[in-house]
Nucleic acid binder design. Structure first.
Ligand SMILES: [Mn+2]
Ligand SMILES: [Mn+2]
Ligand SMILES: [Zn+2]
Ligand SMILES: [Zn+2]
Lengths: 147, 147
DNA sequence: TTTTATCTTGAGAATAAGTTTCAAATTAAA
DNA sequence: TTTAATTTGAAACTTATTCTCAAGATAAAA
């Protein structure tokens, strides 16, 4: 049994435990998200679903995302141009995103030490961390060369 | 001569060098921002200006902010509820913001080591950093206790 | 100082991501 | 199968930010 179907089963349990109803739309959205191995936004996700013939509405995508965040499968990792970007958090530590403001390219840096450091600081301030946005906006090497 | 009038003079120079015109609106906005010793958003800033009798329009506030960012006086430090928050960057290193999603309170941690670490990573990836968003969204101690 | 070209302003319209509304459809417990 | 509760899609709504444009301000040149 693949990792995906494990998650789908867990999600169903999660939904039931909350007293909500498990629907095909919710499952469709979760499955599509699990396929994305990169960052995604609502519009991109919605387009992908539509292209495969799905009839899910954008409203349902917007409504399902907070559930998936709460269940711990995805996280909002950054915002750009007034749009939120998410990623699947399977085995992923919080990490830094370098975002090029010219080409919009995103580069990740995973760094265990950094995460520990930040979590120690959070503990000092008695915060319970939920979401990390560690973003550096700037110009990437390629765009710099092109002027 | 105070630090403010120094900055105002520099800003005028900056504006002229760009071939733009120095206006009372731009100066008013800069001065009001320099007074704010905390994070601010456009609406709050605009309200403050209005309360002191200023006639500056919100459009001008929106238009002036990118100039002040470019000049290096302020930076966008985080976004919340689809609103951007800025702060004056005088002698301020990039720093972490702990943001409570319940009470919206913001706590800062300035940490030279962290900044150096991140900048080293940026250099490794050949990025030219411009803006840092180092945010941790979570629950503060107080809100945690209140349930 | 006056002229003139260019830039900036305020007001309101436009844009677009995300939220809300509501009647019809679906779920799942009884 | 019946029934109560939830969810859905579609469209309306909200709201921060951007854009448009005519009128006003700036500053270089005359
Ligand atoms: Mn990432
Ligand atoms: Mn700060
Ligand atoms: Zn780039
Ligand atoms: Zn709080």
């Amino acid at each position: 049994m693949g990792v995906t179907s494990e998650i789908v089963k867990d999600f169903k349990k999660f939904i039931k435990k909350k007293g909500l109803k498990y629907t095909s739309e919710r499952e469709e959205i979760l499955k599509e998200i699990l396929k994305s191995k990169q960052h995604f936004d609502v519009d991109g996700l919605y387009m992908k679903l539509r292209k495969k013939g799905s009839k899910v509405s954008k409203a349902s995508v917007y409504r399902t995302i907070p559930l998936l965040v709460e269940a711990g499968y995805i996280q909002e990792v950054y915002k750009q141009d007034s749009r939120s970007y998410y990623e699947v958090t399977l085995d992923k530590l919080p990490h830094i995103h370098f975002i090029c403001i010219k080409c919009k390219g995103v580069d990740e840096i995973i760094d265990e030490y950094l995460v520990e450091h930040i979590q120690k600081k959070a503990k000092e301030k008695k915060y319970t961390p939920l979401t990390y946005h560690l973003e550096i906006f700037g110009i990437c090497h390629k765009c710099k060369e092109e002027g």
